[in-house]
Design a protein around this nucleic acid. Sequence first.
DNA 1: CTGGGGAGGGGGCCC
DNA 2: GGGGCCCCCTCCCCA
Length: 565
Amino acid sequence: MELPNHAKQLLLQLNQQRAKGYLCDVIIVVENALFRAHKNILAASSIYFKSLILHDNLINLDTDMVNPSIFRQVLDFIYTGKLLSSDQVSDHNFNALLTAASYLQLHDLAALCRKKLKRNGRSLHNKPTTPTNGRTSRNQRLSSTPVTPNQISGFKDSEKTKRHEELLKDELSEDEVFVRNVQCANPANSLSPSTSKNGSNGPITSSGGLLELGLDLSKKSPSGSTVTEEVSPSSIPQESPQSASESTANSASFDDLPTNPQSLTTGEPMDIGEAEECDENQHFPDPDQQKSTRQISRPRRQAKGESHKGEEMERSTLPNGVAKRLNVAGERLSGGGNSDLSYQCKDEEEGLENGQEQSEESGQSENEGGRNSANYVYRQEGFEPALGDNLYVCIPCGKGFPSSEELNAHVETHTEEELYIKEEEDDAYPKEDEAEAEDLSSQTVQVHGVDSRRFCCTVCNKSYKDPATLRQHEKTHWLTRPFPCNICGKMFTQRGTMTRHMRSHLGLKPFACEECGMRFTRQYRLTEHMRVHSGEKPYECQLCGGKFTQQRNLISHLRMHTSPS
DNA sequence: CTGGGGAGGGGGCCC
DNA sequence: GGGGCCCCCTCCCCA
């Protein structure tokens, strides 16, 4: 007995889930576009993917071989077995598809493309369609500014490309919208290292419309002359749980998108069955051949360890029974390609059990449901039967919910005060003066005579000059971190920190050295760096007289003095 | 090979 | 929100 449509229905469901970002556990980076998908599906489709996603949740594809537009079709094909109808896909597009399919070892797709090209009597070009990486310019496509054919550098046949872009224009899947939120941050800087180094792209202004999409991770250089990212400030899509309701404008664009996989493609689909060599058993080619074609260079290993004092405190104070880790199959988000994208969630790599950190899924869940309000969405570790389907757990109270939407609705009922860790509930923090701390209420203002630091934290007794700073500090005691990274899900207590973190994902280095052209993610780094050119060494060791350009190196040096040797 | 310095990069947090 | 600083990790170079 066999259900005739079982496989089809299963794939349909999976594609719907992809469209919603549901249970997606891998992000594929193609130039400046990100695609969410399921590891299992990719692994089942291509041994190339299979090898890549074993350890990485973030895969960076070779932009010489595939561009975002093509990969979108590839991904659609993987999930549906269908391509756009042949009259909607130009020969040039088939060439690009063939290139991508070969590169990704999607042999069925490659065979399909070959057949179509052969049928059309065209020569096969199993080469990149362009030396400029087929920068099909999703940014441009998404931009409200009209795009001239010349701007689409990815294809020589710009008219056909444009036509294809138009075809795709109105059928963005949700993963692309997710991409939009990320990539619009830096329309000038793609994720490829080629543009991150010197920022050779032209200046981008808000007139392009990209910034309306809401993410600005750029900075302005102090000099201004060497920086290309001239963008106006705009809001960040992530918001605190308290302000989540304000994000409806963002959410609307998601909700309007089609989730039916059929709508992901238009026109008459071309079924995979057209490919002559489409044998189900031919999905996995010779592994040796696979190795030889592997294109992705491994990223430089990133900083791994950190003190994470606050996170350790969080772990120690998490309520019993509250799931912390949403860890989806390895969970380690590492850059699969260029170093600009080689960020790794350090705690994830270290296997820490910190729910606040393990939020790739939370990010997806927020995309699925409240979009920007799912700061409390964490999957239960494993799938404990006792919880049934209530896999989405509210960290503060431990309640489980079957969907992120319900959890988000529940989270709204929590007040800030509830999220705050009361002093009496927390014995994990060092107290400078416990007796005094006991007398402090959350509203207490300590006046220490002429001391201007009148605002004391009731948890750790630190004092601050103004209530805003105190409030900012108090967030470090919260169980939850209100600002998640859209890419890796890492959570931050301050929006600025998250924004800064996002720059590392996107390779944004707005601060350029006028002397050597080296670029930095932070002004402070540039200031430090400038001492290299000036020869200034303001930090002097009082023990040996050694001088240093950076304070941290003096500190490191001092350890050498103090450590027993 | 090892230790030390220089420097790039990331996160936390206060102002 | 941005700036600045601290702390950390890491890599690279060189003696």
